[in-house]
Design a protein around this nucleic acid. Structure first.
Length: 445
RNA sequence: UCCUUGGUAGCUCAAUGGUAGAGCAAUCGGCUGUUAACCGAUCGGUUGUAAGUUCGAGUCUUACCCAAGGAGCCA
């Protein structure tokens, strides 16, 4: 038995005889020579079957292989610049080939497919080159974010998914029957993290969150993963520093560790190389002026109308897109009107119509990837805001308690994983960045 | 929820109201460097569902089903 290797490490084994276990991704043949493209989960490499060098039954076995057949190949690793693969430039000159299973006719061919068909076959689509690269990148992004936070003494906290009350608006909650009561799938772990900081200082939760929004756009999933750090003794400026450090670290880590995957995704990485803290900070008021200016210079009336906005409105996708086009870095937009944000956000000093909130917008038109704020720390003010928003005081009793026992300035934000991955990977739609996306009208497979 | 577009072979798509077709995939054969190979052959259909108009409907009408794209809202 020779050494079993991973394709991603193939460069370290040139000249050695190795064994690779995997699946047939594609195949071309030419009489006495066959080229197999072999996937093993870590990469793709080319296996060359040359008839004169092989027992007849081995060469014949190669000819019988269908797409996605599972095989074990033994052979010599060679450098060859003609060989395609991830990484490219290496191939295996086969000495032996063991067939584990001949796959049935595989529905996803190397040719083009429509999105409906691909989503219906998502359980198979994830094997395709681009999807594979994308989900590997997602794993690295999640790991890098955790690693940075852990390195800064954050403690990971699990927050509940079954919750008795809303974190934000009540219109987008999934109801769950709970032994005769109605409760909800969590939209956020924030309120619980505000309790956690008083025990641990700096915390984060990282898990799935749920929004029953009836939105069908490239940015929306009904179930998506969110990373939510929350920090005690931290104001809005302190939070922005944490955000830019964390995001820069994550992007640079992707460039180092997932260069091959970014190549598969045909991502122009020059924009990613520029993602280094600090990021530009623009107030809502200034952003408003810039949008008005862009709008004034537009000639197409339909485009112009899309950018219509009055002070007090939250930005829509068209506004974010135009704004981010002005910069080649992610940008912070801070100080949103209180009326378009959640009840728990700290008012701006001497400007109660504005709150200490901040969104981070990714460049190249990707838009909002994080949203956060400094939280109200004064118990009386918080109670007043709960009343103003007509929220049930009883449900927030424990939340108000947090302001009674050593209350401090604290801040937190939520980072949407799918949108972040879409940006780093340069893909259009958030649905591809989740292995099994849940969307309005689609929960299969 | 609203607006727009679409549903024909396993897949991607053609087809003036007049014989349902091509490419890919699959199967068989050929080829010593393929990159979505190439060449030859074979196989492949309840045109989303139901009703209607018509001598005749994939095509026209009505209803329904399904999907995609976008808006509002949001990460």
């Amino acid at each position: 038995m020779t050494n079993i290797i991973s394709i991603q490490n193939i460069a370290n084994h040139v000249g050695e005889e190795v064994t690779i276990k995997g699946w047939l991704y594609a195949k071309t043949g030419k009489g006495k020579i066959q080229f197999l493209r072999l996937r093993d989960g870590t990469g793709i490499t080319q296996v060359v079957l040359f008839k004169p060098n092989l027992p007849p039954e081995v060469f014949q076995a190669g000819k019988r292989l269908s797409q996605e057949s599972s095989i074990i190949v033994r052979g010599l690793v060679k450098e060859n610049e003609r060989a395609p693969g991830v990484p490219k430039g290496y191939e295996i000159e086969a000495a032996d080939l063991e067939v584990v299973q001949i796959a049935e006719e595989y529905p996803i061919t190397p040719k083009e497919h429509g999105i409906e068909f691909l989503l219906e076959n998502r359980h198979l689509w994830i094997r395709s080159r681009k999807q594979w690269a994308l989900l590997r990148l997602r794993a690295t992004i999640m790991q890098a974010l955790r690693e940075w936070l852990n390195g800064q003494e954050f403690v990971e906290m699990s927050t509940p998914i079954l919750t008795p009350a809303a974190g934000e608006g009540t219109s987008t909650l999934f109801e769950v029957e709970y032994f005769g009561d109605t409760i909800y799938l969590a939209q956020t772990g924030q309120l619980y993290n505000e309790a956690n900081i008083y025990s641990f200082g700096k915390v984060y939760c990282f898990g799935p969150t749920f929004r029953a929004e009836k939105s069908k756009t490239r940015r929306h999933l009904t179930e998506f993963w969110m990373l939510e750090p929350e920090m005690a003794f931290c104001d809005l400026d302190g939070m922005m520093e944490i955000e830019e450090q964390m995001v820069s670290f994550m992007v640079q880590r992707c460039l180092e560790e997932r260069a091959e995957e970014l190549k598969v995704l045909e991502r122009d990485t020059t924009m990613l190389e520029k993602v280094l803290a600090p990021f530009p900070r623009i107030s809502y008021d200034d952003a408003m002026d810039k949008i008005k200016e862009i709008q004034a210079n537009l000639t197409d009336p339909a485009q112009k109308k899309l950018l219509d906005i009055t002070w007090g409105d939250d930005f829509g996708s068209p506004h974010e897109t135009e704004l981010t086009k002005l910069y080649n870095q992610p940008i912070f937009v801070y100080g949103f009107p209180t009326q378009c944000k959640a009840f728990y956000m700290e008012p701006w000093p001497n400007r109660p119509e504005v709150c200490k909130s901040v969104d981070l917008l990714a460049p190249e038109g990707y838009g909002e990837i994080t949203g956060g704020s400094e939280r109200i720390s004064d118990p009386d003010l918080l109670l007043r805001r709960i009343h103003e928003e007509n929220l049930p005081e009883e449900a927030f009793k424990w939340y108000l308690d947090l302001r009674r026992y050593g209350s401090v300035a604290h801040s937190g934000f939520g980072l949407g994983v799918e949108r972040t991955v879409a940006w780093v990977a340069g893909v259009h739609h958030a649905r591809e960045t989740n292995p099994f996306p849940r969307m309005l009208g689609r929960v299969y497979p």
